[in-house]
Design a protein around this nucleic acid. Structure first.
Lengths: 348, 348
DNA sequence: ATTTTGTGAGAAAACGATTTCTAGAGCGAT
DNA sequence: ATCGCTCTAGAAATCGTTTTCTCACAAAAT
């Protein structure tokens, strides 16, 4: 027995198919594009395609036809489950519409973001969905691109660009209100320093805290391993530590949890915890983590339909879709001092 | 103030640049490709590129040069953190080598997998890294493609194809051995029905259990929400339920956890739990989940270097790289009956 | 019966780059 | 001084399709 030798399929092109089917290349093209041709010829062409194993060369097709049927999807962090969820939604929609997707991951690096945006230009993509980094959102918002683009998750408030975002301020305020209702009056919030989202959530947090008379402390945490841990350690070792912590996204939530774990503090007995982004595992820690769940599918759908409309009407006015999240209240935001209360009941 | 009007950049091509720089298109091409040209001309060309805002058309470039500098990455489930981790590693390597990546997600659907493989053909990709579904791995293993391809994570044992896989049998056996050492003698394992990986882990599980005299029960769980929950409920409600559960991957582990939660059982007090794939949150549940950690970066690196070698030597013999995982032993695999033991110590 | 209209198929142009081919220039060796 | 070699730059061919152009033929309208 020997391996299947490479029979040298020798790059069968449309001309070869045409020769086999005894028609012109143009006719093969027309058959493949599903346009009107004589049924008998169509039959011959289909047979020839099958027998030759012909696969059209997409580069040639795109060059000549001048549309790529490709969209770019540029996200800041593919490991963040929020982005993978949105990506899947977008990908499904795109492929069901016959569009290919180029997925790019910037790792919150504005330079890589710019590089990818330029790549999209060179690919002559039909459109782009972009979750910009903070620095990126400023330039992306300002400068005009050759292709339709919609921003998701993060967007500068001023720039006139299509975007779909969460109502971050309201959601952050909702979280603070919830914690306040649970009896928390000293709350610290940790916000990503690099994303517009983090900034907006911080603003909502601070305003709500001020309005409710909550003693609040907002920290901007740089992107990078260990940063959140340091911040939590600092805030919890103060003279009068907060009774509740708020994290501005799922990754941050994870980092806060690790920091608390390292400090030997448990949720919610020693400190309450709430945040953004719902991930599957969150129902198992701290008796269930209280979070704002984002409508990921809807974000994807909205982004894609905005993109399609933008493609159809390049000169229409920019629109901004603001979606609401859902507060998932669970045990991690329980009232403060429960642990101490219990001890007092038990000890004397 | 009015918006920036679209000034119709009107598709500036290499000829326009050539005209501005007063050289031939060939010279522009050579400058851009970094080949030897008169420094003065190079200067003029660079200036012209900058002033015209020229971006090369990749479709044209690929058509003429006959290489796409693109690799396809086809994974079964992008939401599975294992695949996102491997994807990131591969993406980083590819981009650092000047290759673009097309990321595709098959959702364990052999039909989509075949569709994507065909797409890769049409894109004339330089190579493909594929994590096949079970049905897919059989066909992908058998049939020859026009491009170099390496399989990751899952691979049929017989087929002569490059692949990099975990030593699944040994790792599963290691997990069983570990549980046995902890005193567990009744273990149930849940394995994905659709992946070759699941099958191999099941074999390792069964062999090790038999060798150690462990009372084992192996279940194949179909892909789909709720399937694992049903299986766990069935196995735990039997007359003599196992004292430990083993899950064949991270997603399964999550599902088992949810099922146990629903049944009101806690880990490890009511039942021990261990599995494959290490995710960040796992240190927080059940006192820390015992898992086999896969060397994701190394898998990505190995896959890429195999792919490069395959590209350089298309006719070399197929190779199989088998990597070892690392057992992360934590509290979730604690000895059985600890809860009862504690109660006995405390109560009398 | 003749002109108009419409339709389908082949020939040829075009898409935008890279690569090959060709010619001229520079330079060292005989 | 001539030959031959290397090297650079422009002209032209080329990659594999789709699209436009052209024409023949058939059906509809006058």
């Amino acid at each position: 027995m020997h391996l299947v030798e490479n029979d040298f399929p020798m790059a069968v092109g449309i001309k070869d198919v045409a020769k086999v089917a005894q028609v012109s290349p143009a006719t093969v093209s027309r058959v493949l594009a599903g346009r009107a041709v004589d049924p008998a010829m169509r039959e011959r062409v289909m047979a020839a395609v099958k027998s030759t194993g012909y696969r059209p060369n997409l580069a040639a097709r795109r060059l000549r036809s001048r549309h790529t049927n490709t969209i770019g999807l540029i996200v800041a962090d593919i490991r963040n489950p929020f982005f993978t969820a949105v990506s899947r939604a977008i990908e499904d929609i795109a492929y069901s519409r016959g569009l290919r997707v180029i997925l790019c991951n910037t790792d919150e690096d504005p330079e890589r973001e710019a590089m990818y945006l330029q790549l999209m230009q060179e690919e002559r993509v039909t459109g782009v969905v972009l979750a910009p980094s903070r620095a990126g959102s400023e330039s992306a918002g300002r400068f005009s691109t050759d292709f339709p683009m919609v921003l998701i998750d993060r967007a500068v408030p001023g720039a006139s660009r299509d975007c779909v975002v969460l109502d971050n301020e309201a959601m952050a305020a909702g979280l603070v209100t919830h914690l306040h209702e649970q009896g928390h009056v000293r709350i610290a919030g940790l916000f990503g320093a690099l994303s517009a989202t983090g900034v907006q959530r911080r603003i909502g947090f601070e305003h709500a805290a001020a309005a409710l008379g909550v003693d609040s402390q907002a920290l901007s945490v740089p992107h990078g391993v260990g940063e959140a841990e340091k911040a939590v350690a600092a805030v919890m070792s103060g003279p009068c530590p907060p009774t509740a912590l708020l994290a501005s996204n799922g990754v941050m939530l994870m980092a806060v949890l690790r920091a608390l774990h390292a400090l030997g503090l448990s949720v919610p007995d020693d400190v309450a915890l709430a945040g953004f982004d719902k991930e599957d595992w969150m129902e198992f820690v701290g008796g269930g983590l209280t979070v704002i769940e984002q409508p990921v599918e809807e974000i994807g759908r909205a982004a894609m339909s905005m993109l399609f409309e933008r493609i159809d009407h390049p000169d229409a006015a920019a629109r901004r879709v603001v979606l609401a999240g859902r507060l998932v209240a669970r045990a991690s935001s329980s009232p403060p001092h429960m642990a101490r209360t219990k001890i007092q009941e038990t000890n004397p």
